[in-house]
Design a protein around this nucleic acid. Sequence first.
DNA 1: CTGAAAGCGCTTACAG
DNA 2: CTGAAAGCGCTTACAG
Lengths: 329, 329
Amino acid sequence: MATLADVARRSGVSVMTASRVLSGRGPASASARDAVTQAADELGYVPNAVARGLRNSRTGTVALVISDIQNSFYSAVAKAAEKGLGAHGLNLTIASSNEDAQRERDILQAIQAMRADALLITPTEHNGDHLQRLAQHGLPIVQLDRSVPGSDIRRVLLDNAGAAWRAVTHLTEHGHRRIALVGGPERITTGAERASGARNAARQAGAELLVAEAASYLHEGTRPAVEEAIDWGPTALIAGNNIVLETCMDVLLERGIDVPTALSLVAFDDLPWLRWTPAPITALRQPIAQMTTAAVSMLFTDPDSDGVERRFPAELVERASVRRITTAS
Amino acid sequence: MATLADVARRSGVSVMTASRVLSGRGPASASARDAVTQAADELGYVPNAVARGLRNSRTGTVALVISDIQNSFYSAVAKAAEKGLGAHGLNLTIASSNEDAQRERDILQAIQAMRADALLITPTEHNGDHLQRLAQHGLPIVQLDRSVPGSDIRRVLLDNAGAAWRAVTHLTEHGHRRIALVGGPERITTGAERASGARNAARQAGAELLVAEAASYLHEGTRPAVEEAIDWGPTALIAGNNIVLETCMDVLLERGIDVPTALSLVAFDDLPWLRWTPAPITALRQPIAQMTTAAVSMLFTDPDSDGVERRFPAELVERASVRRITTAS
DNA sequence: CTGAAAGCGCTTACAG
DNA sequence: CTGAAAGCGCTTACAG
């Protein structure tokens, strides 16, 4: 593959001049300019970003570490991140931790090795120390969706408590008095905050609330909690995220429980298919694109001037999965 | 950030020896080994992959270029690719072309600049020449899912014609005689091959077939074709991929057309939510993980010894969206 | 406006 | 077993 030296030789100038012309920084005579661009063209010269990265200690690459690339929430994040970064002329490297602490550690190490310029991460709860160390080395880091407990690493999050509060309140306003939330693990901020928001709302409304805690945000970890919640006999069920929702759908189908006649349902995360179930599903929509864009721009912003945390509200999209209950009183 | 020189200095050996110890290649005395590993540990030394990449002209990175990261088909590809590559100790960089020729060109150039070791791509039909040039420069390339027409770049594809044949035959066996396929653009191999397989099957069975060609595999491009197909008044509809299917669901819902009483439906690509619609949807399941794994291993295999193309069959998953039609005869 | 030199951090032959 | 030298391809001061 052609190098800068090849271009210089062919155009009869020094490597230096060729570099200046092609990078567009520094002066160059018109004739040098012409000769170099022509030679570069003829040779199909493409600058070596690796060499450039070594020299400049800037690689032009941002790493995105997500929990599960197949989860549509995170692929929406990936899409928005790619778009936002592309606007900055940056490349995106994506890796998926699969909620696994060891794997996340390996990824973090690889990112450090490849000298990424910045890191966007939806962290597991396990590697806060590692993250902190990277931040101290000067790597700009922004957490998205979730945050490692007790660190000062910047983050862009949903107003989880507010969203859960809204879901429960929506249900109590429809007359529900026995509500189950299948949430994520409370070790994870989303799980903890959603549970606490739901508890507040239930208390305020004087309704009963069961929080069934899934072992993980992966499918396998989710079923016992869903079954526990349904066995408890609620009139309404809140699926704490889209993975939990899928498990709920399976269990409801298996047991022949009809929504909303036998059970009302509210989902965290909005997806196209929620419109196509027998009773279209009411959902809390997260502003994923905006959150991701905010996280990307936070990456390039002064940590001290811009605050450590931003929260975004969810929007309740009402469809047909919540029944109004009228109590004889 | 600590460099090899720092480690060498701290452990009282030369850079050379430190390199040998840490890379595990070449001899080293036990004492040197101990001193170096300890120093590396204390300094939190992480080798600079950029420098290593420049020196070795191998970056340990494989690029994956997909058409749309939010399309669950491609995010399944991304997941499988990451897993397969991880086993080889390689990093994965993902970029999404969004079916845009110019964007794909930019991505290809960036990949060349960053000196990726190999490329996995679900190509648009536009940049075959560019791909060919990269291949001639010695970059291992494997096309997945789709292939650029008229090139000898290796590829792993679905048996599209066979799968479409199977879908149509399934319908004719259920008595359908007027079938519409909403396919992708026939410029794209998947679109062309699925259309041709469907035509063969219809001809064999003596059934009428309308192929409505979507302008693109993006949502926007898909609606006119879906409406054309439904307006034609078929008894059965085949959605040529998962994006088309989503549009079909929207249009059917808007028009109040019931599946399968008013219209039977078969989908390309299987997804969890197909089980949860009022009539669970019969689908052709692609072996995405196997195809991706095959593509990954093809990347590291001798081009001359292993053939240029591999095809995988789809599996028909029968559910409840196809009605049996009994004709008065 | 242009070029020779030095160096980013690593590893591959080559001597000792 | 160990080290001094050279070089991967680029760019940043520094002279001319």
